[in-house]
Design a protein around this nucleic acid. Structure first.
Lengths: 250, 250
DNA sequence: GTCAAAACCAAATCCATGTTAATACCGATT
DNA sequence: AATCGGTATTAACATGGATTTGGTTTTGAC
């Protein structure tokens, strides 16, 4: 702690460096970004739709969702974020937030002034391009979700989401590929999938009955046969654009 | 023509310059990007899912869609593109395409080698950041589509899409806000909305019966009262992140 | 440890949208 | 003007998922 304080920004550096080769100065500049660590309590909002944002936010621990509320009052979750994700590069550069970001669990975040990020992107093209590519991956996930919600039936949708979580949690070091703890309630899942919580419950039962998953507690998911679940979920991990080494461990 | 050949890349420059202040050298460098003009016939593919891509593509005229095919065989359209859009900054930097891009009509495109774009992004941070921001806007539209498909009923979904087209076509100089030609069949619309073509037809009739729109030919849309249609579609243009001057003319 | 609130589970009913299939239209040829 | 293929339209019927209700279990705040 005294001699080698581990920066919470390290996970960001690690993530971004996949896309471009940073030199020492790039890394230093990233780690030197001004930031403030904050703890955000369960269910609190990081940003609300239509607000102006001034900070971007790196998730150090915990889970967060992005969501939109439609006129009927129902909620659509458009993304789930976990440790190491840069939440809200999205909102913060488009001036007015087009969606809300809410924390699921108590979270530690590093708040970085967006102007500092912006400046860095101009000064160090390596960093700028890396962030650009990172948002391209986000966009790819959004596209897959459009397809999931638009064209797959409830069971397939759910299986797909469970596969996505499986890989992402593993990569984030938060579980095993075939065994993890769901960070969210069935209602959250429903809002990811454009379904009702009641129906998510039914489909979980179906997946369980078909021996694709099993659950010890209500949040714990164990995947019996990963490939079968992936088939059931029409899941192809291409869209996550994981690195080879990340894929390998899956 | 002889003294002032108008570059097809100009519309790209105009679009990108909204986000950052280009200097003369930036603009020059953008216009100097190597590119090849090609004409692509109706229904042809620009990229197919899982292919490796080497070029990025600027739409000079015509319409294109991005889509994914799910296991049941149905198609989900995840984006519609028109004149001036950079199609496939997305695919081309993520090595393997996670979705297909297909043109609807005969299209003129400018094909730009992705390496040239990448190099430019490193050499001229202004350009890199501008492209980054452009993809942030794309991502914002994806999010809105997730919500549209996931949480709005058929009629609202359709009204929402018609509003989006209304603004985007107007901004692209391809129609009036209250009066435009739909670039797509009802089946295409259905695949944007996660519905069937039959049901899209039904809903078009409903919107017509409620005097929200009228149609002279089957593709022509006239919006009676824009605000009423926007209400019916739960439409708020924030997510398009249009410039003020573009919004003004809406 | 207690208690209220939240989450989960189950069953019955309903309805928005899907499915299928037949007909009508329209624009592009020849 | 006859033909043809792709769209659009319409109707009858089927169904996946929503809704509603009520009960049970778990969670977390104190």
């Amino acid at each position: 702690m005294l001699d080698q304080p581990k920066s919470p920004l390290l996970s960001m550096v690690r993530k971004l460096t996949y896309w471009v080769d940073f030199d020492a100065a790039d890394e230093e500049a990233l780690l030197a970004l001004p930031h403030r660590i904050a703890t955000i309590g369960r269910n609190r909002y990081i940003v609300r739709e239509r607000e102006k944002t001034t900070h971007s936010c790196l998730l150090v621990s915990g889970f967060a969702i992005r969501h939109k509320i439609v006129v009927s009052g129902s909620r659509q979750i458009v993304a789930v974020h976990m440790k190491g994700d840069m939440v809200d590069l999205q909102n913060s550069f488009l001036d007015v937030a087009d969606h809300s970001v809410q924390v699921l669990t108590d979270c530690e975040v590093a708040l970085i002034p967006r102007d500092a990020i912006k400046r860095l992107a101009f000064e160090r093209p390596n960093v700028g391009v890396a962030m650009w590519f990172d948002t391209l991956v986000d966009a790819s996930v959004f596209r897959e979700w459009i397809a999931n919600v638009g064209r797959r039936d409830a069971q397939t949708r759910l299986a797909h989401l469970l596969c996505e979580f499986s890989l992402r949690l593993k990569v984030a070091g938060l579980g095993e590929t075939t065994d993890y703890e769901l960070p969210m309630t069935q209602e959250h899942i429903a809002d990811c999938l454009g379904l009702t919580a009641v129906h998510v419950n039914r489909m979980l039962k179906v997946l369980e009955a078909e021996k694709l998953i099993s659950r010890s507690t209500s949040r714990a998911v164990t995947i019996g046969d990963w490939n079968k679940l992936a088939d059931a979920g029409d899941f192809d991990s291409t869209y996550l654009h994981l690195r080879e080494d990340e894929l390998a461990l899956a």
